[in-house]
């Protein structure tokens, strides 16, 4: 027997626990610090900043909800807000129908593993990996009214009257951008849907086929309900993406949502308000922060509602 007492042994075990806790702290503190400094601190400050007056980079007096009143109720400003909001809603709905609808069809077809389906997956996904800036510029060139690829093709097909200045007309500018966005992103929901379909046990589909169900019935009655979780995720991601839409309109038609604010978005408006723009106003951090808080609250609330509703549907269908 050694001379150590029972208490000594307890202490030795406690020292081991302490060493383990230090090790955990070593693992956790750096990432937590980075997250705190560069995410939580600025997010918190955004709320704080929205209730102050700002003069450039200098914080002024506490003004309560004045900034919010200004952006929401002063007609000079609120008309921009509501116009942009309307455009974001249009973007969301159109993207849901055009892009995600097409993605669903493509995924259902690819799930049957037709010849060359690996090739199709790669091709459909190719634009997804490219920078929005590249895509935006590329299509800006293609949509050029005089020499752009699109109008050239239309003229070559004898549809001269269709060769419009697509990005220059208020009626066609936003739809054009939405189509460009669909072209850019369609591969993403396609492959997410496809992965979800692949996770459905083959037995279900085979059982339905033995029951004599047509491919259409199988798609509608078996595959669609069982891929519900993927649908939830895509709807929420599309919503968040649509209300953060910035790069495509910025690159293709500039910060002012030309022509005539027909492609103005909340993201552009926020940027203009916060950092100023050539034509409009000076930089206003107060109003900008108020806008940011409003946009965040809106996106957060609606995402939560979507998630709730769609998860309830998942459970019902499962």
């Amino acid at each position: 027997m050694t001379a150590m007492t029972d208490a000594d042994f307890r202490r030795a075990i406690r020292a081991r626990t302490l060493r383990r806790n230090l090790w955990l702290a070593f693992l956790l503190l750096p990432p937590m610090a980075v997250m705190f400094i560069f995410i939580f601190l600025p997010m918190g400050s955004a709320v704080l900043y929205s209730v102050y007056e700002w003069d450039g980079l200098v914080r002024g007096d506490f003004v309560g909800l004045e900034n919010f009143r200004e952006v929401l109720f002063e007609p000079q400003k609120s008309k921009f807000l509501f116009n942009a909001f309307k455009n974001n809603v249009i973007v969301f709905v159109s993207v849901m129908v055009v892009q995600n609808g097409l993605a669903l069809v493509l995924a259902m077809l690819l799930a049957r593993e037709p010849k060359g389906y690996r090739f199709y997956q790669v091709v459909f996904f190719l634009p997804v990996i490219l920078s929005t800036v590249i895509i935006g510029f590329q299509w800006k060139l293609f949509l050029n009214p005089v020499f752009g690829l699109v109008n050239n093709l239309l003229r070559a097909a004898g549809l001269d009257s269709w060769a419009l200045p697509w990005l220059g007309l208020p009626e066609t500018a936003l739809p054009s951008m939405i189509l460009v966005n669909a072209w850019h992103w369609v591969g993403f929901p396609t492959l997410v849907f496809l992965a979800a379909i692949h996770r459905i046990p083959k037995d279900y589909i085979e059982a339905a086929r033995l029951d004599g169900a047509s491919e259409w019935r199988i798609a509608r009655d078996i595959i669609w309900p069982l891929m519900a979780p993927a649908v939830t995720i895509i709807v929420v991601l599309t919503f968040i993406g649509a209300f953060n839409w910035f790069e495509i309109p910025y690159v293709m038609n500039g910060l002012e949502g030309a022509p005539g604010y027909s492609t103005d978005m909340l993201g552009l408006l926020f940027y203009r308000t916060a950092f100023g723009s050539i034509s409009a106003t000076d930089s206003d951090f107060g109003a900008g922060s108020a806008l940011a808080v409003l946009i965040f609250l809106f996106i957060f609330t609606v995402s939560l509602i979507f998630t709730r509703l769609l998860t309830a549907r998942e459970i019902e269908l499962a």
């Binding site: 995410i39 955004a46 980079l57 910035f246 900008g288 946009i295 965040f296």
Partner: peptide, 26 residues
């Protein structure tokens, strides 16, 4: 709690905090 700390970061669109982030980085 720490898991939630990290997970909550998934829901925070940092773009909207660009103003304080700008001041902070400056």
């Amino acid at each position: 709690m720490v898991s939630l700390f990290f997970l909550s970061g998934l829901m925070l669109p940092l773009r909207l905090a660009i103003i304080p982030l700008f001041i902070q980085l400056k």
